[in-house]
Amino acid sequence: MVQYSLWLSAVLFALGVLGVVIRRNAIILFMCVELMLNAANLAFVAFSRVVGIDGQVFVFFVMTVAAAEAAVGLAIVISLFRHSESVDTRNFNLLRW
């Protein structure tokens, strides 16, 4: 089952990458990043069946970083929305070119 969990983790991570590339809504981009973090968590938990409990401890730290990232990222989304009444990433290309 560890092997299949790692396959599932790779598939979920690839889905997150797909979402980040094809979507334009900033909030959905954040959700895709969360999905990628969860795929990493699944790999950590699966490897904790191989190397011991440390994998589960690492999941803790990943969850903390995810919570911090969600808080700061959503604050950035709110302040972007206040700036231009939209969360579409097409409108935020000032630093792009």
Binding site: T64, A67, A68, E69, V72, L74, A75, S79
Partner: peptide
């Protein structure tokens, strides 16, 4: 987490 909380308040 402390830095993230302060940063979120500051940004929003």
């Amino acid at each position: 987490l402390l830095v993230a909380a302060i940063g979120a308040v500051l940004l929003a």
